[in-house]
Amino acid sequence: MNWGNSLGRMITNVSLVTVWSLDQERSRDFYVDKLGFVVNTDAVMGDGFRWITVNHPDHPELEITLRPPGPPLDQEAAAFVRRELGKGHLGALGLQVDDCHKTFQELSAKGVEFVQEPADRPYGTEAIIRDDSGNWLVLVEKKEFRPLDAG
């Protein structure tokens, strides 16, 4: 069976990912004002349900929905997610950057919290930031991986 071909016809790409948010407007502002994303959709559906997505300006094909811990989660589950966000245990996105050190300087100047400053790795340079809800996001500047470097 040729999975490559059949899979290619069935699923073409990832179009939506979810990021937990404690406050959708604050998160929207964080992703737009601090990280440079753009609002894709902001729609109120009634009954307290608001759908907000953002995307990277060059990649509208991948939307990020900013989702508050609420229905269909029950109250206990939603409270659990809020606590895990508060503790800082939840990770959200990996973000590719051209120059990790430069981005670190720029985001720091904007007041973005860093968990880990840029660190060199065999495969590139990485840093870890927090979003406004406490999710950790990875900034990665990739380079060609040479296993010998790791020895």
């Binding site: 990770g91 990996g94 880990q116 660190a119 790795r121 065999p122 495969y123 990485e126 840093a127 870890i128 990875v138 990665v140 296993p147 790791a150 020895g151």
Partner: peptide
């Protein structure tokens, strides 16, 4: 074994 093929940040 060489380094792990897992992003260090994780």
């Amino acid at each position: 074994h060489g380094g792990p093929r897992v992003p260090g940040c994780f």
